[in-house]
Design a protein around this nucleic acid. Structure first.
Lengths: 334, 334
DNA sequence: TTGTACGCGTTATCAC
DNA sequence: GTGATAACGCGTACAA
């Protein structure tokens, strides 16, 4: 069943059917209705491949998630929420989403090749871009449409992205710890070559400096966003006797709390803990954190990407979404 | 850059280039090499739309996840792990994955329409199919390729699926509780119109009957797979004083344990708890559970679907994957 | 072993 | 307003 068949049944030409389907002008009302009726009756859908061939657009966006084990699945709901947000925008704008997941321990190079080779999607949404990410570099030099869901590690001025103000938010988080009287404030960072992580670290040091507190290298643990690293980091930091810890993400914060409990350290009395993201686990663990809607990041990024694809927006475009301090029991006893 | 361009540069005809790309015979070694060199030099990739138009295949499979809130994201890592498994197979076989996520609280009807309308994928992987799922029914009557990641609620003989032996596994789980001396064994089921859930309930009743224990309706809580329902269910079940509970999934089990702790009930001394799936949370919570690899389910289902698409397998095909009882601290004190 | 020619189902550009 | 007709880039019988 194709345009021609529909045309025959409706007693018009193929072009007219095409016009009706694409909602173009210059079709008389009666003819339009007749065609619509046939389409409805036959449950006709135009062939996407044929359409893509001539329009050079697939109405598909690709989503790249280059890291997985312990991060994508496992204990972290960041990516699922992001996908949820992307799905919302994509549905709304009548696009579809092609998902690329790295295999566990796959190197970035082979992953990038795989993603790049598939020329299907009209644009790409990039997560977890690292310093010298081959995928990032390739897209940049090939001039393909893409949007990042964090601030990029390089070439901020040439790249479109959606982010939260990590620096400011981290400052607010650490200020909160200072306000409740903490002075030996430690931090557990995310993977430091990811921008979200490094910016939060910057906010941490900013806040300490602004308050006239020393920056103590032994109070900084360079980790990852997952629970295991939070646990590890806290165990290591404990020997330097911090009275508070700012974790780069909620999942790491949960790990830190586990380590504290295990060591018989009271939260928040002995050590106050603050996370970042306000994931589901933060609510469950009664964790003070920085709230920002991961879903909104996802849907905003998808919308931005589609705006760029469809030429509605000049290219390098930056969107900074708001954050909010949510105070719970891990910093202030109830 | 297209076949014609490559052909010109290599001094051959377009068909020869096509033959080289598709690895067909009847191309002399020198010609093949010459063409390959040009392709490599020009970084050429054939246009997928044109290819799909003529072959009527896209090398894309769709993955449908019709429920989200509290299940896809939130506290449950089942779907991310499933996706991870699917990704592995899909990469391996040079396919791509189109992901369909329902929006929160979207009704199944509109979701199904959206998925069906996109004729792009060569086949679909279905999760969380309910009794009268419109998507399921549509695919069945339209005779489109699809594979389910659980046993289907109806038409088992007409549908291909991958599953674990839920009934047997649940029997083993409940037998374990009986062996450690429990007699008032409760259960918290998953969404009962999903086959995984109902089969596990069947296993539960089977085991009780086989042991000559009564089936007490008040000890059965019909819930969902998420943490909140586990918590709710346990609170309700507590009034009937169970000495053990078999949860339909690990996440629900975690919720149940939270309710027990809150009520000052000791685990496992007063109430033993067993889950299902062996998700990450099960390890963390030291939960006795039934292990089965969700990733393997995903990759197996994807491989099966692709086998069917490519005509290597007769259609209704069933694969049952093994399970294993993993005993941890929630049933046997350490 | 290689090349020619047609068709896949659309959209876009013209005439009318 | 409507209808021919030429692309779009590829696979594939069939001819050579």
């Amino acid at each position: 069943m194709n345009l021609e068949d529909i045309a025959k049944k409706a007693g018009v030409s193929r072009s007219t059917v095409s016009r009706v389907i694409n909602n173009e002008r210059y079709v008389s009302q009666p003819v339009r209705q007749r065609v619509l009726d046939v389409i409805e009756r036959e449950q006709f859908q135009p062939n996407p491949a044929a359409r893509a061939l001539v329009t050079r657009r697939s109405n598909i966006i690709g989503v790249s998630i280059p890291q997985t084990s312990n991060v994508f699945f496992g204990d972290n709901s960041y990516f699922p929420m992001l996908l949820q947000g992307i799905a919302e925008a994509v549905n709304c704008l009548d696009y579809a989403m092609l998902l690329w997941l790295a295999e566990s321990h796959e190197v970035r190079d082979t992953f990038a090749k795989r993603v790049v080779r598939h020329r299907q999607p009209d644009g790409l949404l990039l997560t977890s871009v690292t310093d010298d990410d081959p995928l990032f570099n390739h897209l940049l030099q090939r001039n393909r449409h893409f949007v990042m869901v964090e601030s990029p590690p390089r070439h901020q001025d040439r790249v479109s992205y959606v982010t939260v103000d990590n620096v400011r938010a981290a400052e607010i988080a650490v200020n909160h710890l200072i306000e409740i009287g903490r002075r030996r404030i430690a931090t557990i960072t995310g993977q430091i070559n990811i921008r979200d992580a490094s910016e939060r670290l910057t906010g941490y040091t900013n806040a300490l400096q602004a308050a006239g507190l020393p920056i103590d290298d032994s109070l900084i643990f360079y980790g990852r966003f997952d629970r295991a690293q939070g646990y590890q980091g806290m165990r290591q930091l404990l020997q330097y006797q911090p009275d508070a810890v700012f974790a780069g993400g909620d999942t790491a914060a949960i790990g830190a709390i586990a380590a504290l409990k295990e060591a018989g350290v009271r939260v928040p009395e002995d050590v106050a803990v603050i996370g970042f993201d306000d994931l589901d686990v933060a609510v469950q663990a009664n964790l003070t954190t920085i709230r920002h809607s991961v879903q909104t990041v996802g849907s905003t990024a998808a919308r931005l990407l589609i705006d760029i694809i469809e030429g509605r927006l000049e290219h390098p475009h930056h969107i900074v979404l708001p954050t909010e301090l949510v105070i719970r029991g891990s910093t202030v006893p109830v």
